[in-house]
Write a protein that binds this DNA or RNA. Sequence first.
RNA 1: GGAGAGAUGGCUGAGUUCGGUUGAAAGCGCUCGACUCGAAAUCGAGUAAGGGGAGUAAAAUCUCUUUCGUGGGUUCAAAUCCCACUCUCUCCGCCA
Length: 425
Amino acid sequence: MIDVKLICDKPELIKEALLKLNSTAPVDEIVELNTKRRELTYEVERLKEKKNSTSKEIGKMKDKESRDKLITEMREVGDKIKELDEEIKKIEEDLHEKLLWVPNLPHESVPVGKGEEENVVVKTVGEKRIFDFTPLPHWELGEKLDIIDFERGVKLSGTRFYVLKKAGSKLQRALINWMLDLHIDHHGYTEIYPPYMVKGECLTGTGNLPKFGENLYRDAEEDLWFIPTAEVPVTNLHREEILEPGTLPLNYVAYTACFRREKMSAGKDTRGIKRGHQFDKVELVKVVEREKSMEELEKLISHAEDILKRLNLPYRLIKMCTGDLSFTAMIKYDLEVWSPGCDEWLEVSSCSNFGDFQARRANIRYRPEAKGKPLFAHTLNGSALALPRTVIAIMENYQQPDGSILIPEVLRSYMGGMETIKGGI
RNA sequence: GGAGAGAUGGCUGAGUUCGGUUGAAAGCGCUCGACUCGAAAUCGAGUAAGGGGAGUAAAAUCUCUUUCGUGGGUUCAAAUCCCACUCUCUCCGCCA
């Protein structure tokens, strides 16, 4: 959510920015509603002031006649207040609803562009491996080695589900533990194990609702939703809180399963384990002071990159242009790992600075100094990394001519010393 | 799931019988001052928060409003009365 005051102060500037985002948010209506809101608030507060002070006087009065007269008078004032309060409430709800649909404004450094094609490749790190045989896609490797079972996944749960087994599941488990340990021990993050189901207000807080409800799974009877990413519960840890001086920055790392309907990507990436309805992810979340968020973003990206570097996988860093920016992000970078079997770059991480967009929705504030006025914090997050795609990258990049897969050195101790994944293990 | 108890400021905890002088006793904590070479102890003063508006370069400051779990109701007036809900605790049942 962006600041109403900002919208009302500089509506033209906002409109211009929204144009770059291909957004049609109703700026004029918002300005109008807010003006009305302020007028009515002023009016009703004058009336309340009168009623409050008069009521106190009534309590002290002895003369019945003038007392009754005032009571009658205040009864009318009370009715008027009720009427105005209702009107204000309606306006506020309307205004709030409209604001929830306004996307975040892009940071000044974000390149202007219409869509994906205009994203900027910031850098490419590592060399693509030269194969002296044709590298296989992970779905073929996985079936040959009997470490991914697609058929039975579909039998259990339908399309976009699969079963990992043997060294396949062990590899994923090793990655999770290794990544968590790395972030905790070397990057200074605090581990969180959050609920996988949250209330709707959490999703509104992070910006997944109301706009992206169709991409989420939910309980049929209660207001409980499956998380599409750990970002949701972890960012919401501090919803409705005012953080005391000295608490920030907060650096969290969380491993969770993630659940997505993939309605917006229907028909896309149906092969392999690239895009499932359920997948695992290790996620980094930061809550920081507002002046610090851009430098924290750099750190965040470097922490995600560190995983790829240590796994020795070729990757590239992409800066998203305005047309490809997500609804909530002020600035966003993707990390893409090279996958020789699929023959494409796979997005394994998305690192965003949300500015105070989420903090406003979730009401996450901090006190810059003792007794100071609370300010909205800045929130950031990035995957580090998404598991299935990292598994894909390892399988495809480390495959051998005989179809076996070499295990990256950093993971071996997490796999009981295993060095190669061969059939039958 | 059944029965009962509870939810008040940074914390502990009164107030709810009989609605007004209670934005809230008392204590703890914290801040400032006195005493002291300094500290402790003691004494004195101050100390809830959110939002809006005025003001300022920014503060200071002034002012209105809301808040005693949440939402509604009664009333001129609600921490206090009524209704619904949420959460916490205890006991029973069930369970990984």
